[in-house]
Amino acid sequence: MGKEIRVDIETLRAADSDRQKVADQLRAALDEGRLSLHEYDERVRDAYGAKTYKELLVLVADLPRPGLSASEVAARQLAERRREARRLPPALIVLWTIWATLAVVNLVVFALVVASTDGTIYPWPAWLLVPGAALGAVTVGVQAIRNQKH
């Protein structure tokens, strides 16, 4: 086997078009009031002198995409935190998956038994509501605790 060469994107040489894109992003940041004229001049000078992508990325690392307001950035961060807070912990996802699988199997077996016999059959799948209710209560409790932390 030959040697495998791993090239990190940041070490690659930047092209003139890459430098121009960064300069355009810096201009947009200046127009939006995110950079002072002095900062803009320094960063544009550094952008045109950059040799690698890493040197370019450092110049715009603290800037949002052009046209994105601070309130939009804050709204996106808040939405992401809310989405993360609603996400169930992996253990609960596993437990709900197990419960749902057992419920489906029991209901299918029950339906097959009912369809293949003439007599009255005890509705044993109803007992699955007990662990389902307990699991639901635990889920609500865990989410309430997680929401208090945020």
Rank of each mutant, 00 (worst) to 15 (best):
E39Q: 15
L128W: 14
P123V: 11
R34G: 09
A28N: 08
G49M: 11
R82W: 03
S71W: 00
R43P: 03
I121E: 09
E80P: 00
A14M: 07
E4K: 12
A100G: 06
P66N: 01
D62F: 02
V104N: 02
K149L: 09
P90H: 10
A79E: 14
T97V: 06
V130F: 14
I121V: 15
E42C: 03
V73P: 07
D41E: 13
R6S: 09
L107Q: 08
V130I: 15
T52P: 10
A14G: 06
Y40N: 08
R83M: 01
L35E: 04
S17E: 13
V105G: 00
V140H: 12
K51G: 04
D118N: 09
M1I: 08
L35I: 05
D18C: 05
P90R: 13
A14T: 08
A91G: 04
D31Y: 02
T139H: 07
W127M: 15
A14W: 11
E32L: 00
G2K: 07
V94M: 06
V138L: 15
R19K: 15
A85F: 01
L37K: 13
R65N: 05
L57E: 12
A103G: 03
V138R: 10
I5T: 13
R146Y: 01
L30P: 01
L112N: 03
V44Y: 14
V94W: 10
V22G: 05
R83S: 12
L26P: 04
L37I: 04
Y48H: 14
L129M: 12
Q20H: 10
V114D: 09
R87S: 04
P89D: 11
T52S: 14
P64K: 05
E39A: 10
V58Q: 11
Q143E: 13
I98K: 02
S116F: 00
I98R: 03
D16V: 08
I5W: 04
L68Y: 01
T120K: 07
A100I: 03
E80H: 10
L88K: 04
R27G: 00
G33D: 02
R82E: 15
G119E: 11
R19C: 04
D18I: 05
